[in-house]
Design a protein around this nucleic acid. Structure first.
Lengths: 333, 333
DNA sequence: CTGAAAGCGCTTACAG
DNA sequence: CTGAAAGCGCTTACAG
């Protein structure tokens, strides 16, 4: 590998001059510039980012800590982030935290050593206190999918509003006895979606039978079990809004296994907008989260902060409803 | 951020000594060691990987270039690679090439500047010549999902064997008129799976009607169209082996839209083993590729090479058949 | 417009 | 067992 010294020697100038031309900084005679460029070309010289980082403190890398790239929700976030990073000459270091606090903390430390210019934390388990503490010794931080009140950038999607979208859709279809398969109460997004459901029902003047709200685990099995419980009720619901797609798919499976089908026997709506919803039968009505944009905006925020913007932002993106076949009343409202 | 100098000053020793204790290299008095460790603790000192890399040339990072993390095939590979990297204290830089030669080349250059210790290239479009050329100026390279004959590490899965697995399964079920929805001829894996199909049919002494081999595009739409063509034949097949799962799902959709169903009217088998196959109805029989292991082994190979192993390896992993409901003959063979 | 020098934060022989 | 010095490959004031 050629170094800046080799280029300088070949071009017959000092390393300072080479540095100036490759960075287009300071004055340099056009003739000299050409000679340097020729030498760069001849030696296939590529400046070492490592050396550059050591002096400038700018590594051109961003850390992305997410729970599990294998979970259908996260590749989109990663892709949005990587695309935006790419456009600005940045690279992404990918870290899977497995929803574990220790792995998050560990990676945060490693990324700091790695001299990343910013970190994106998706669905973090860290408390706000720890986060603010980390922020002192850390490069800029953006938290995705977690509402943060303190002085940390955050990007989230409107879960209350999204749940309202789903619930209203069912109301518009003419359903009144609407159940909710909720996510685990430990999850903030699950609580928010539950709230959106309750709020919308209340606004419509409809009381919610407590038996119609069943807690699931955000996984297929949980959705299945929850649906079984709903079907076992003396008066089962006409429709169910599930807090995520995996549970909705589980609910559909349970319906089928009980020889019923959606939407004829019960309307089903999911949440997230993962690919699977398009391939399942009946095609699932769902609330699509702007996952790609979340990753994209996170990098944008980081870049602005690196460039000196001081103000903390809390961006809330809007999900949108995608109507499939699983919730549409065929006989009309 | 505290530096090694700060630690040295606080502990009252030289930076050389600090370096020795944090790297556990060379002799150091236990008392001195303790003092240094105490200083490290007190200052929350974390050695800069950047500075260390500059002198040791070991950055602790590996580059992963794959076509698109959003494509269901790749997150598993990435996860396998990241897990193995994590175990050895390495980090992964994620790059999406969008199946484009230019992006691959560009990233290869950037990763070199970033001083990664190795690069994993998934489904590369680069020619073998270009690849060997790159290898001269580059850190160790491992190519995944692409058979390479030259002196480059490669990890692939046995596509011919996997296709044979699928085809034999259909034969065992008693089907004789077996069609193949192939992937695009430009894809090596598609050609290999086609070969596995042909070879198995020949071994069984069954001639293949050319009309039964239809080329698709590895996407849902292509599978749908191909199935439509098969259904339009005067003598449609009894079973079809699809070169990937997305096309198989498309084929299932077309069957359903034509008021037929699998496996009663036609048996369907896919390839890849993406999650979707488990949620589709009927549950799809498919050939599961060892994607996680491919990523894992790739990092292992890289690490061995970094440690000095000179011999080039071509690892071929074996896929396995997962029998679902889409291909099982209910009335018995 | 150009070059010499210092320095970024480490590691690594080399003396002692 | 410990420290002074050189050096990794750059950038950045500072002279000239």
């Amino acid at each position: 590998m050629a170094t800046i010294k080799d280029v300088a020697a070949l071009a017959g100038v000092s390393v300072s001059t080479v540095s100036r031309v490759i960075n287009a900084s300071g004055y340099v005679d056009s003739k000299t510039g050409e000679r340097v460029l020729a030498a760069v070309e001849a030696l296939d010289y590529r400046p070492s980012r490592i050396a550059r980082t050591l002096v400038t403190r700018r590594s051109g890398t961003i850390g992305l800590i997410l729970p599990d790239i294998t979970n259908p929700f996260f590749p989109e976030v990663a892709r949005g982030a990587e695309d935006e990073a790419y456009r600005h000459g940045y690279n992404l270091i990918l870290c899977n935290s497995d929803w574990k606090l220790e792995k998050e903390t560990l990676y945060l430390g490693i990324l700091r050593q790695q001299c990343v210019e910013g970190v994106i934390l998706v669905s973090t388990k860290l408390t706000e206190e720890r986060l603010t503490e980390e922020c002192r010794s850390l490069p800029p931080l953006v938290v995705i999918d977690r509402t943060i009140t303190l002085d940390i950038h955050s990007i989230s999607s409107n879960n209350v509003g999204g749940a309202a979208l789903a619930t209203k859709h069912l109301l518009v279809q003419g359903y009144r006895r609407i159940a909710h398969i909720a996510g685990p109460a430990s999850s903030i997004s699950a609580r928010q979606r539950l709230e959106g459901y309750h709020r919308t029902m209340a606004e419509a003047g409809l009381p919610v039978d407590p038996a119609l709200v069943v807690e699931g685990d955000y996984r297929l099995g949980g959705g299945k079990k929850a649906m079984a419980r709903l079907l076992a009720l003396t008066e089962p619901p006409e429709a169910v809004f599930c807090a995520n797609d995996m549970m909705a798919v589980g609910a559909l499976e349970q319906l089928q296994e009980s020889d019923r089908c959606a939407p004829a026997d019960m309307a089903v709506v999911g949440y997230d907008g993962i690919d699977l919803t398009r391939y399942v039968h009946p095609r699932l009505t769902t609330v699509i989260q702007p996952t790609y944009q979340m990753g994209e905006r996170a990098v944008q925020l980081l870049l602005e902060t690196i460039k000196g913007n001081e103000s903390f932002q809390h961006i809330e993106l809007e999900p949108r409803l995608a109507i499939g076949d699983s919730s549409v009343r065929r006989d009309g409202p």
